[in-house]
Structures are given as structure tokens and as C-alpha cells.
């Protein structure tokens, strides 16, 4: 009984992770400009790969493997916002335009404020 429960949890984690990756890929293709695409790639994509890693840890069933999977998950969660922020900062500073119907751009006069 216990192994069926564990297998079900693993299967749900795997399907959830793959679904998040699919949502991220669809968002990457459907969203209008660079900055909105970054939302899809950095949030949903990170959750997708993190859930798949957690599925490995749950499926293995021993503590060291689960700890390594958890460490990998936290590593991705820590590094994805940094890389997305750096990339958005660089693109905005160089002057890649926002989508024409964007409501506000709080970084518009960033150079004047500092």
C-alpha cells in the first residue's frame, strides 16, 4: 500500500512538473515582448524542473538522495530570479522596447534617479 502511495506522489510530481514546463513553453511563444516572456520562462520553467527533481528524490526513497534533490531545487529557485533580473536589466538598459500596450515602465528614468 505504501509503495502505491509513493508511486502516486511521484507520478503527480512528474506530471505537474512536465505540465509547468509545457505552460512555460506556451507562454514563451504566446506572450508579446521580451519582458513578459521572461515571466513565463523564469517562474513556470523553474517550478517545472524543480518539481521533476523532487520527484526523483521521492521516488528514490532514501534520505541522501532526497536531500540532494532538495538542494538542487533550492539552487534553481535561488539562481533563476538572479539570471532573469540580470537579463531584463541589461535588455532594458540597452533599450529593447516594451510591448506597445504596456501600462507602465517604472525603470524609464532610472538613470536620472541614481
Amino acid at each position: 500500500m505504501m509503495d502505491i502511495l509513493l508511486a502516486t506522489i511521484t507520478a503527480l510530481l512528474m506530471l505537474g512538473g512536465a505540465g509547468f514546463a509545457l505552460v512555460a513553453a506556451i507562454g514563451l511563444n504566446r506572450l508579446p515582448d521580451l519582458y513578459t516572456r521572461m515571466h513565463a520562462a523564469s517562474k513556470a520553467g523553474t517550478v517545472g524542473s524543480g518539481l521533476l527533481l523532487l520527484a526523483v528524490g521521492v521516488h528514490a526513497g532514501d534520505l541522501p538522495t532526497f536531500a540532494r534533490a532538495l538542494a538542487g531545487f533550492f539552487f534553481f529557485v535561488l539562481t533563476a530570479p538572479i539570471s532573469a533580473h540580470l537579463l531584463a536589466m541589461a535588455a532594458h538598459k540597452i533599450g529593447y522596447p516594451l510591448y506597445a500596450e504596456s501600462v507602465r515602465d517604472e525603470m524609464k528614468d532610472y538613470d536620472k534617479r541614481i
Partner: peptide, 12 residues
């Protein structure tokens, strides 16, 4: 951005 996402998918 798409390449970053691609590494995530390959990790999966």
C-alpha cells in the same frame, strides 16, 4: 531567455 528555459527542460 529561451536558451535558459531550454536548460530547465533538459534538467527535467
Amino acid at each position: 531567455v529561451a536558451l535558459d528555459m531550454l536548460t530547465g527542460i533538459v534538467i527535467g
